Simulated scan of single mutants.
Amino acid sequence: MRQRFVHSLLVTLLILVALIMLVPFFWMLWTSVQPPTFSLTLPKIPAVLNWQNYLIVWQTTAFARYYANSILVALTTTIFQLFTSILAAFAFTHLQFYGRRLLFKLLIITMMIPGELLLVPNFMTLSALHWIDTYAALIIPWIASVFMMFTLHQAFESQSRTSYYAARIDGGNDWQYLWYILVPMHRTIIIAVALLQLISSWNAFMWPLIVTNSDRLRTLPLGLINFSTSVGTNYPLLMTSTALSIFPLLILYLFLQRFIITGISKVNLRG
């Protein structure tokens, strides 16, 4: 009886916390379909939902360009990070080479360095290469991720070496074992960390702000800032632009939630 009461109490608390966290999201969606005369008062049901706000935002701003830039940068950096991190994680777990442990420790130490400290040296390097205000500046510095490499290293290291030796005995090389056996066995963790990196790249603000000068290369976070400056206190349009910026990630999560939840739970258990 007591366990049932405690379980019911925990479920109630979780539902309450979930509702509290969802309130800002639903408020944003509700405000995005309000008329232009909407003010920050208690919600009222309008006679007609103003879906025109989405069309207005899309047509009166360069949202298509912002979307294209964000998709290009986020997908490209995530794909490169996946490729480099998978190769690095495999090398540190299955290959023997001089200085392997020391190099791995040095890479882990770099995770302790705040990213803000690297902004100036990275900017100076790109400026010397004349890459400022180019797609290369938005993509090249982020084609490798120590966080993703470390996470995949932990996953690969938990894999029994029996399958590796069996693959080698059957005539398979390291490349074949990696892509045909190891990666498919850990696809849930790979998808989970890839989505985390994709979200991080999609929401990046400071770095694109520093290395881009023209509207041609602006990503969605920068586009939202420019849009909010132009519309002022028109809250329905502001919420519409915000909703448009998060819809792609929301849709992606809905399709991949099974892999994400399973992958993150495995990462936590193995961490």
Rank of each mutant, 00 (worst) to 15 (best):
A137R: 09
I143R: 04
T212W: 10
S214I: 06
L126H: 11
I246P: 00
V193W: 00
V146F: 15
V183W: 06
G171E: 09
V146M: 14
T151C: 12
Y164Q: 09
S158P: 05
M206H: 01
S145K: 08
S228Q: 15
S163P: 04
L217M: 04
A166G: 03
S158Y: 06
F255M: 12
F259V: 01
A192N: 00
S228M: 13
H186E: 09
F259E: 02
L224N: 11
Y235A: 08
I190K: 07
N203Q: 06
I210F: 07
Q159V: 15
V193G: 01
M239Q: 12
L252G: 12
T125W: 06
P141A: 09
I225Q: 11
S160Y: 07
G223Y: 03
T240C: 15
Q257K: 15
T151Q: 13
H153R: 15
L182S: 12
I181R: 10
S158L: 14
M149I: 07
G172Q: 10
I251R: 00
A167G: 13
F227V: 05
F156R: 12
W131E: 08
D215I: 14
I190C: 08
Q257V: 02
R218V: 03
L126P: 08
A155G: 02
D174H: 15
D174T: 03
V231P: 07
L237M: 13
N122H: 12
P184S: 07
F247M: 09
Q197K: 10
T162D: 14
T242N: 06
V120M: 08
L249T: 11
P236W: 10
N234A: 06
T125V: 13
L220H: 00
W202F: 02
M148S: 13
A204L: 04
L178A: 05
L119E: 00
R216Q: 13
L222C: 06
W207M: 12
T151I: 15
D170F: 08
L178N: 05
S160F: 05
H153W: 14
G232P: 01
Y165M: 09
L222I: 15
L237C: 03
Y177R: 09
R258G: 01
L250N: 03
V231R: 02
L224Y: 01
Y135G: 10
L119Y: 00
L209R: 14
D170S: 14
A192S: 10
L195T: 00
M148Q: 11
M206E: 04
G232E: 03
F156V: 06
H130M: 01
Q176K: 13
Q257N: 11
A137D: 06
T242V: 07
Y253H: 07
S228V: 09
P208N: 02
R218I: 00
A204G: 03
A144Q: 01
I132P: 07
I143N: 03
L118P: 02
T151H: 06
W142D: 07
T219C: 00
L209Q: 12
L222D: 12
T162M: 09
